[in-house]
């Protein structure tokens, strides 16, 4: 146990926790987009992480191939994925609305296959790096924090806050929250549900695009990169209560810490195993999600 406690109080562990916190910001952003879509449209986009993957490619091509500066490249990526989200809704989701959940899951699962393989087809299987290094800065003598992680965290936090204000202050935001509580009567409020679905899909896509920009600062992109965080984002959303934005936000940080801690004491995979096990146990304690409201 000595080594355990040595480990626990080492500066590296503190650095690990800090990294977990910063990673949590990006996970929170990802779960926000997925949750929003589920809350409004009542469909889980199994292919959500693959949209992020395409967004990372968009950043890479805009910046590294076409030579755009980083900020415009990110703008291009966000718009591209927002458009992709809208197209996904019109072309696929709109046809399975109101169908059995199994068909909805499978339709978006088919899109997952499609996006992975078309990325392989177009971009190949090499790992591509955007190669923007912001360096890191020192907090104490031994603790360093990567600047790209910090930037990602801050942008994610600001975006989550911005979304909160949008949802609580604007007419559109009020309608988005309302439709998740009572779908049928929205028509009496003068809301065209299909238009709202389209807008939400574009917003959800845009959030995926933004997350892609932040992830591209830290990770290489390849066609299967979605698998490394996709399942995690589903778990976060379910644990927070599907469609519950605040619950998803908290769950994102819990999961990020679990993974960081697990991978600190063992391997990265064990971090993921730990997180998934906690998820399964949590589901048994609170089946509707840990932070779900009692109905």
């Amino acid at each position: 146990m000595e080594t355990f406690f040595d480990n626990l109080f080492s500066v590296f562990f503190i650095e690990t926790l800090l990294n977990g916190l910063l990673y949590g910001g990006v996970l929170a952003l990802l779960s926000l987009g997925l949750n929003l879509i589920f809350g409004v449209i009542d469909v889980v986009w199994i292919c959500y992480a693959e949209l992020v993957m395409l967004g990372m490619y968009a950043v890479y091509f805009a910046h590294n191939v076409y030579g755009l500066p980083m900020l415009p490249a990110c703008a291009v990526a966000i718009l591209a994925v927002a458009l992709l989200g809208y197209i996904l809704h019109r072309v696929v989701i709109a046809h399975v609305l109101g169908k059995a959940p199994i068909n909805q899951l499978l339709a978006t699962g088919g899109v997952l296959f499609f996006l992975q393989s078309i990325a392989t087809l177009i971009f190949g299987v090499e790992f591509l790096s955007v190669g923007v290094s912001l360096g890191s800065f020192q907090i104490t003598e031994d603790i360093y924090v990567s600047k790209s992680q910090l930037v990602a965290f801050i942008i994610a936090a600001v975006t989550v806050l911005g979304m909160y204000l949008f949802l609580s202050r604007s007419y559109m935001g009020a309608a988005i929250r309302a439709i998740s509580q009572d779908r049928e009567i929205m028509i009496l409020m003068g809301v065209d549900a299909n238009r709202l679905y389209g807008i939400t899909s574009a917003i959800g896509g845009g959030l995926a695009g933004l997350a892609a920009c932040l992830l591209a600062l830290q990770f290489d992109v390849h066609p299967f990169v979605g698998i490394s965080f996709g399942p995690l984002v589903f778990m976060i959303c379910v644990m927070g209560g599907l469609g519950n934005l605040v619950g998803g936000f908290i769950a994102a940080f819990v999961f990020a810490q679990l993974i960081a801690t697990g991978s600190y004491f063992a391997d990265l995979e064990w971090g993921a195993v730990l997180a998934f096990c906690v998820f399964v146990i949590a589901m048994f304690i609170r089946p509707e999600g840990l932070f779900a409201r009692k109905s």
Partner: peptide, 12 residues
Amino acid sequence: GLDNTIYGIMLV
């Protein structure tokens, strides 16, 4: 990846 691309489309 072309095979899986077509496969994915057909599944949808």
